[in-house]
Design a protein around this nucleic acid. Structure first.
Length: 268
DNA sequence: AAGGAGACCAACCGCGACCCA
DNA sequence: ATGGGTCGCGGTTGGTCTCCT
């Protein structure tokens, strides 16, 4: 039994969007907001599939989109995030305001891949092309206060082949440093996560600030109130492994805190 | 000027995850 | 617990543009 179609294909347009269709979609979303993509086309008077409407809005019509060329900083940020996250374009896009996952994916495939190959770096593994496969190991210290479900991180990398992720399940965030297999030996993967500068809502004031309270890692990933959130059972142990973290100086993949705040790495 | 090749990117497709009855 | 409906993601396709010969 096949999967049911997402819409009545016989009565939907396909292919490039017309100006009129764009205008209708924009007007409808301005009036009613995003969501209910399945029913949106009919309500907006569009002969399009809901998925198509969603894609058109997210990738092209959204008012906050930044059009135009990628900057050198964006290039490098994409490369670094890809080295960590793999082909998780939506997560990468979440770190690049105004950019969409589709745009980044296309940009990666057309520009960055070639750029890395020219540098002699394998874009899939972020390792030198002529380097034989080896099991480099690096110590990653997660300075979070509570343990994290393994799948929180391994799921990020689950599409990688076993060769690339030799032992993702070895990534366990505990108070002590944990050995993990490293995919990008040229990158400093030491993670130092602590409180960004801005004020936090009460729920998150438990994040370790050099004081005495901690934020669970689920919240640090922007998964507030998720089932993984364990803020209610805070254990103050972070200080034991965060000797190099400071209130203002944490860094991640060599990026400043303002550039990569894991807590806004939220799912779209 | 013509046309072939490669680059670019918007859009489509299928699947997995999630939600809810 | 389960099954149907919906959404979002990542891979792929195909049309258009640009460059080169």
């Amino acid at each position: 039994m096949g999967r049911s179609p997402c819409c009545e294909k016989a009565h939907t347009n396909k292919g490039a969007w017309t100006k009129e269709e764009d205008d209708r979609l924009i007007a409808y979303i301005r009036a009613h907001g995003e969501g209910c993509w399945r029913s949106l086309p009919k309500a907006a008077g569009l002969l399009r599939c809901g998925k198509s409407c969603r894609l058109r809005w997210i990738n092209y019509l959204r008012p906050d989109l930044k059009r135009g060329n990628f900057t050198e900083e964006e290039d490098e940020l994409i490369i670094k995030l890809h080295s960590l996250l793999g082909n998780k374009w939506s997560l990468i896009a979440g770190r690049l305001p105004g950019r969409t996952d589709n745009e980044i994916k296309n940009y990666w495939n057309t520009h960055i891949r070639r750029k890395l190959l020219n540098r002699g770096i394998d874009p899939a593994t972020h390792r030198p092309l002529n380097e034989p496969a080896q099991e480099a190991t690096t110590t990653i210290s997660f300075t979070t206060s509570t343990s994290v479900k393994e799948e929180s991180l391994s799921s990020v990398m689950k599409e990688e082949s076993p060769e690339k992720i030799i032992n993702t399940t070895a990534i366990v965030c505990k108070e002590e440093k944990t050995q993990v297999q490293e995919r990008c030996p040229d990158l400093n993967l030491e993670l130092r996560i602590c409180l960004p500068h801005q004020n936090q809502p009460d729920h998150h004031q438990s994040f370790k600030t050099g004081g005495s309270r901690s934020l669970c890692f689920a919240c640090s990933l922007g998964l507030q109130n998720s089932k993984d959130c364990s803020c209610s059972v805070i254990v103050d142990t972070i200080g034991s492994s965060s000797s190099t973290s400071t209130k203002t100086g944490y860094d991640f993949l060599g990026m400043k805190s303002g550039v990569l705040d894991y807590r806004s790495l939220e799912m779209k």
